[in-house]
Design a protein around this nucleic acid. Structure first.
Lengths: 284, 284
DNA sequence: AAACGTTGTTTAATATATAAAACAACGTGT
DNA sequence: ACACGTTGTTTTATATATTAAACAACGTTT
């Protein structure tokens, strides 16, 4: 069963602005906010929804949802499912997402690199970026083998529970970590997931000194992963590359260099110039 | 220079509702509509925009745009570019588009088929669906050669001017064509683009009898293409598969069967059962 | 340096969307 | 056949978003 935290509500406001005079939420246009909330109510599990269902879930009056959905249909973001009264996401939403992707330089450059990594290792490889406490997959090169990655582009995971995320979190300063995790508490997904920012930092220190991260038992048993950071010209980590495989069946060390190399290649294309004490690793 | 009709405004309302009592546009929520218009103002050419610019372009008061953009930022669909006052599309939009893709059965099934087609022919292959008078690319398998497809997922083209589009339009009845082209006039993109629905129908008849469509001089000189329709269990054309190549340099007939086979494979996976008089074609 | 055009942000009057209520049209169970 | 719960749609008073105008803070030009 697909895990429920592959949810798209990651970067999204859950509640309506509580206090109209509160700082960040002072000028929120409800019509727009709720319209977007409606769009986000659709996901892989629930691909088609009716107005009443959404109204209940979001706590918005039926007639308002009705109007909003009509607007969304008019804009091509929703479409009526056959002749029923339910809606599903319309192809119009594609334009948005892909324009976003297309405008990200990294993704353009990453594709051939991921493909090569996939060919070299035989594993599915991904490029992900961080959005707050989430990692978001933006490019994927699926393994040709029977065991291939099932994550799709746009999928979100909790950063602290994935290798990809750890590699990116490791670049943050203490104060930046504080911003990402204001409470200091982290949700658990397996018995190895760190529970507090302090515990997370310990793990990150190890990752940082090695320059890559191993194993993914923090999140899901049986899935192994190797990840390495991608840096831009300023030296900051802006993304991460990984490969995934069935844990225990592979000798991880054989692939670390490949992943590091791919990440390093991409970093170089982004005009990252490694510091002097950074050693080049190469296989063979 | 990239052509301007690779625009995402295809399925979108250009003007605000003119007459509030007119039929289809009676219940449009302006806040939502304009918020989405703002999102759509971003494209490959203009990846970052400021509020004044958008206000001018859409004819919306500055202060309104300001509020809408603040809402969009709050929802994770826009993000401030560094510390300037400009915005770019945020990663939040990915969640929308890809949930849509993920919910489309075709795309899941199409990928391996497109990859095989690409490997067999050496050309970039695509799956596209039709949205009104547009074709929208939804899956792509890029050629490994130097000459690869530059279209990205989500790209829109005028259907009547592309092979992919013709293959899908050919499945429409006269009345459906009427709905798609109410005026009967078609914009021209090359001297071979049909100008009227009547002229288009002539071409479509030929495509239908052959079961595939050839050559793309209707749209852009120098680009060749072969496309074939994908049908669902009801027998209706729901998508189309194509390969593209540099025109004149290849013997098209060598590849027609491959494309037909790929389209047929995908159709069969969608539970399409060909009619009795439909002959199976196979190479070798 | 002063005048000007930008732009980001806020205010306040007015135009407008909202949401409760009501209606119609279903299906479902009794 | 009737009562009941759904749902799609429309109305209408009221709550709310909109927008012109104004302010502040820039950078340019003269």
């Amino acid at each position: 069963m697909p895990p429920c935290w592959i949810s798209l509500r990651g970067s999204m406001a859950r509640a309506a602005p509580l206090d109209p005079t509160s700082d960040a939420e002072r000028y929120i246009v409800p019509g727009l906010q709720r319209g977007l909330q409606i769009l986000r109510a659709f996901d892989r599990q629930r691909t088609q929804l009716g107005a009443p269902e959404i109204a209940r879930e979001l706590g918005i009056p039926r007639s308002t949802v009705f109007r909003l959905m009509q607007t969304l249909e008019y804009m091509g973001l929703l479409e009526k499912v056959d002749h029923s009264s339910e809606y599903r996401l319309g192809i119009g939403v594609l334009s948005l997402g892909f324009e976003c992707l297309a405008s990200m330089e990294v993704t353009e450059l990453a594709r051939p690199i991921l493909d090569r990594l996939r060919d070299e290792t035989g594993f599915s490889s991904h490029l992900a970026i961080r959005d707050g406490a989430d990692v978001v997959f933006v490019v994927k090169s699926a393994a040709k083998a029977a065991f291939a990655s099932s994550v799709t582009i746009g999928t979100r995971f909790p950063a602290h529970a994935t290798i990809l995320g750890r590699v990116m979190l490791a670049d943050l300063s203490d104060s930046e970590l504080q911003t990402v995790y204001p409470t200091g508490k982290l949700p658990r997904y397996s018995d190895q997931t760190p529970e507090t920012v302090t515990a997370l930092k310990k793990i990150l220190e190890g990752d940082t000194s090695r320059g890559y991260a191993l194993s993914a038992a923090y999140f899901e048993h049986g899935i192994g992963s190797i990840a390495a950071p991608v840096r831009d010209s300023s030296g900051r980590v802006i993304a991460a590359i990984n490969v995934i495989f069935q844990d225990g069946k592979v000798e991880k060390n054989d692939y670390i260099d490949r992943v590091l190399q791919a990440a390093s290649d991409l970093s170089r294309q982004l005009n990252y110039h490694p510091a002097v004490n950074k050693q080049e690793r190469r296989t063979g």
